[in-house]
Amino acid sequence: MNKKIIYEIKSLYRDDFRVWGYEFGEGEKSVCIVGPMRGNEVQQLYTCSQLTRRLKVMEEKGRIKKGHKILVVPSVNPYSMNIQKRFWPTDNTDINRMFPGYDEGETTQRIAAGVFDEIKDYKYGIQFASFYMPGTFMPHVRMMKAGMENVELAKKFGMPYVVLRNTRPYDTTTLNYNWQIWETNAFSLYTTTTSSVDKASAFQAIQSILTFLSKEGIVEYYGHDGYISMVVEDTDMVSVRTKKSGIFESKVIVGQEVNKGQILAEIIDPYEGEVIDTLTSPVDGSVFFKHSDPLTYASTAVFKLIVQAH
């Protein structure tokens, strides 16, 4: 293992801002794994740290195949993590909206440029991502339809789902999109949580990555192959929205199979305690995403369901 600083800036009163890279193996730039870019992505940090621990042991045992280099970047944004703020401390910009970056630009543009310069030539790029809404997910690999996506490759992770989604204007400045433009096969891995640690989900993600690396001939790994992934288009999922704002009380868990008409959640009047809205499943399916905050706004997609195939 070779630990090196891949980007660094000095601060007036804080310790230097450093982005570290952990290299395993030697040879062609095979895979780069990137952890949190936002200050609240604790699950992503934990997952990366456990992956690093695992790769260290595998390297010692000679299980990283010759001619392959793996780079793990455990956090692109330690400054925000240390003050528990999602975006950049001073100007609230999002590093994952700054790619490919600009080395003579503003601070987060420079960070994006400096980091991207180190990670852009890898064959595969894997990012531990998070969603802007508070909630829990079924673990999945997400791919943007930027023209380079390869669904068959994504299935090799053995995650329960591979989700495809259309690009939106803001996507063009994300790491995933720019990796693809620079001809890296890019995947975003979603585990269940963001700001809390779910160990089981983290280890499932690590197993998925090692399975993928093994199938691509980068490591020797003899774990479980995982799932035969189901491929889902984001647009095919059914959103269940609240009609009223109030206290959100879920009746189901992520991954649970639900029947058409089954009660998914109730919205409670915050002053009088009465049920003011009952959300039912419009389809037979399974819960892919569930809102996790106790309060919710009206019109919020608090569930995303995958429709059961008949």
């Binding site: 800036i9 601060s11 007036l12 001073t90 630009g105 503003e106 601070t107 543009q109 420079r110």
Partner: peptide, 8 residues
């Protein structure tokens, strides 16, 4: 007044 490296 407070700037980081790169601030405009």
């Amino acid at each position: 007044p407070v700037v980081d490296e790169g601030s405009l």
